[in-house]
Amino acid sequence: MTFRIATLLPVSLFVVMGMVLAVGLNRDPKILPSMLLNHQLPQFDLPPLDAGNPKMSSDEFTGKGLTLINVFGSWCVSCRYEHPLLMSISKDPRFKLVGIDWKDGADEARQFLLQYGNPYALIGADVSGRTAIDLGVSGAPETFVIDGKGQVRLRIPGPLTPQIWDQQIEPLIREAQKAL
């Protein structure tokens, strides 16, 4: 009986499919690529959470070094989980941490910040949720890293962890420091 390559075909197909599916199994389908990655931050203008504070405009993130935009809400459970990390980085002078209070009541948001601390240099209130939709936000918390040119360099859906910080955000901060 002659040996035929065709007999190996099903086996090799099976191996290839197995590898493709194994990669697929290990990817989190909830994590979607951001449409904004390496694009200019969309225009927005948000009123401050507290009257009297400056409003938050997308224009002010250009030409001022690195900015971290954190989308949060007092109703958001995982925001409480990442909050201690935000508090610990809030005094870092290498970047500015600002918050977008997403679909929240002003009183609830103030209470939340009173209770857990306020890590943000600036807070914009996105009551209608329109700005969040322009940013492609699908759930809170979500964090964007904006570079000095006003471009989105990174989007982290879900709570920040020390691991994400060290592996993904810290390198961008160092890169921005070098560029200065």
Partner: peptide, 9 residues
């Protein structure tokens, strides 16, 4: 309009 924000997903 929606796909521009959230992608083809």
């Amino acid at each position: 309009f929606v796909a521009q924000r959230y992608g083809n997903f």
